[in-house]
Simulated assay, not measured.
Amino acid sequence: MSHDGALPLNSLGFAKAPQDTRVVVAMSGGVDSSVVAAQLAEEGYDVIGVTLQLYDHGAALAKKGACCAGRDIHDARRVAEEMGFPHYVLDYENVFKDAVIDEFADSYLAGATPVPCIRCNERVKFKDLLETAKDLDADCMATGHYIQRVMGANGPELHSAADANRDQSYFLFSTKPEQLDYLRFPLGHLPSKDATRALAAKYGLSVADKPDSQDICFVPNGNYAQVIEKLRPGAADPGDIVDPEGNVLGSHNGVIHYTIGQRRGLGIGGLADPLYVVKLDVDKKQVVVGPKDMLATRKIPVREINWLGDEPFTSRAEWHVAVRVRSTRPPRDAIIRPISDTEAEVELFVAEEGVSPGQACVFYDTDSPRIFGGGWIWRGY
C-alpha cells in the first residue's frame, strides 16, 4: 500500500490517525467481539458497535450458550456504554430465516449434516452487515473471529489463527477476496483464549467471565430434531433401519434423529459386530447401517468452491494441499482436481471416516498457515 503522507499505517492498516478511522465491530455479546470493540475504542478508533438480532427476539428458542439472543444484545449494549461508543441493533430475522435456517432444515432433511454458521458468515454477516458498515462510512469491519488476515504479495490472505485450538478458519473459508479487503480480525494473533479474557478484565468488561457459546445459536441444547420438527412438521416420520442389502434390522422414529457415522442409540442389539449409520435415505425413510469400513472415504466431490489462491483455480490440473472435512479434525494431505471454477474432486491420501454431505471441505497450504478457500461436500456415497 503506497501513501504519500508522513503518517504510518495504523493498527488496522490505514494511513491516518485512529480517530479518523471508522470501524464497525460486529458484536455478538460474547467476550471475543466485546474485547475487539473495547480494544479499538481504547486505541482511539471511531468505533460503532452493531449487533444482529437473528431470531425470535431470544424468546421462542432462548437458552444459555447461544449468540444473538436477548441477553446477548443487552451484554453488547452494556459494553458499548462502558467504553463510550455508539451501538445499534439491526433486525435481520427475515434475512437469517431465508438465508440460513430454511436451508439448514432442508439439507438436514435431505440426509446432510449442515454447518449453518458458515452460511451465516457468508450470507448475513459478511454480506448484509458488511454492506451496512459501508453505508455507515466505515473504513473497515472488525469481528471477534479467531483467524488472521495477512498482507501478501497479491493482497490480503486468510491465515489460520495463532492458537490452533481456537482457529475458526473452517467456518470462514467462503470469505471472498473483496470481503477480505474490508474485514479485520484483531484476535487472530493471540496465543490463547486466556489472553482474550485477560484483555476483557483489563478493560473492565462486564462480559469478562461470560462462558463461550457452544451450540448453533437457534438450536437449543443441540437438539436439531426438535427445531426441524418445528420448522418442517411431519419430518419425524418413522421408518426402517436396514443393512446395505435392504434387510430390515429395526425401526426408527425419524431420519432426522440420526447422523452419518453414528453408532450409539440405534436400538438394534444382538449383532456380533458394531454397526454405524452409513447413509440416510430420506425418500425411503430408511436409516442404512453397516460396518465401520463403509464409512471410509477417499474421494470427495466438492462444489460451490471459493478459491483464495494467487493463481486461478483451473490453471492447474491438480493442487496438493491439506483439507479439513470436519471442524473438529486436523487437516489431512490431499489432491484437489478442479472440474470447473467452482467444482472439484478431492482425493485424500488416507481415507477419512464419516465424510458427510452438507459439511465443508476447507483447503490449507501444507507449508504455511494460509487458507486457500474450500467448498461444500455433496451427494451421498
Rank of each mutant, 00 (worst) to 15 (best):
Y108A: 13
R22Q: 02
T21L: 03
N94A: 09
P369D: 08
A133V: 02
Q214T: 09
K97F: 05
V100W: 06
D106R: 15
V323M: 04
H159C: 06
S169C: 14
D281E: 11
R370D: 00
L129K: 05
V289S: 13
A164Q: 06
V23T: 02
V50R: 04
Y146W: 03
F173E: 08
A225I: 01
D46L: 02
C67F: 15
T113N: 09
A351S: 13
E245Y: 08
I268Q: 08
T366S: 13
N223P: 03
L266K: 05
V89E: 14
L158T: 08
N10K: 05
L280F: 13
I101M: 15
C217R: 12
F171C: 13
H257L: 07
V350A: 10
D75C: 07
Y108F: 12
G234D: 00
H74L: 15
N253Q: 12
L129A: 08
D310N: 15
I336G: 07
L271Y: 10
T51M: 01
C140I: 00
F96H: 15
G144K: 08
L249S: 06
K210D: 00
S356H: 02
G44S: 00
A236N: 13
V115D: 10
F96P: 08
K299S: 15
Q359T: 10
Q39K: 13
Y276N: 11
I101Q: 10
Y55H: 12
D181Y: 05
D20K: 10
A62E: 09
A236K: 08
I377D: 05
K125F: 06
D135H: 12
P301C: 09
R379Y: 05
A235P: 03
R166S: 14
A76N: 12
A76H: 09
Y258W: 00
V346A: 02
A272K: 14
G188N: 05
T51Q: 02
V95K: 14
G70I: 00
V282C: 11
D310M: 11
W319C: 12
V325G: 01
E345Q: 01
P301G: 13
G58A: 07
L187Y: 08
G70T: 06
L249Q: 06
R298S: 15
F349N: 06
G188A: 11
P357W: 00
V288A: 04
G111N: 07
I268Y: 05
G222M: 01
V89F: 11
A208T: 05
G234L: 06
I228W: 15
V350R: 11
E82G: 03
A360G: 08
P330T: 07
M1Q: 07
E157G: 10
G49V: 01
V346D: 01
G204N: 01
M151I: 04
S315A: 15
Q226S: 15
D215S: 13
Q168A: 14
P369Q: 01
A200I: 04
V100T: 09
S206I: 08
A62N: 14
E347R: 14
D102Y: 11
D20I: 01
Q148N: 10
F218Y: 10
V248E: 08
I371L: 12
D98Q: 15
K210C: 06
C217G: 13
F218G: 09
I147P: 03
P220F: 01
T132I: 13
A37K: 02
S315G: 12
D128W: 14
L54V: 03
T21Q: 03
G267S: 07
Y146N: 09
S33E: 01
N121R: 06
P8A: 05
H159S: 09
V150E: 02
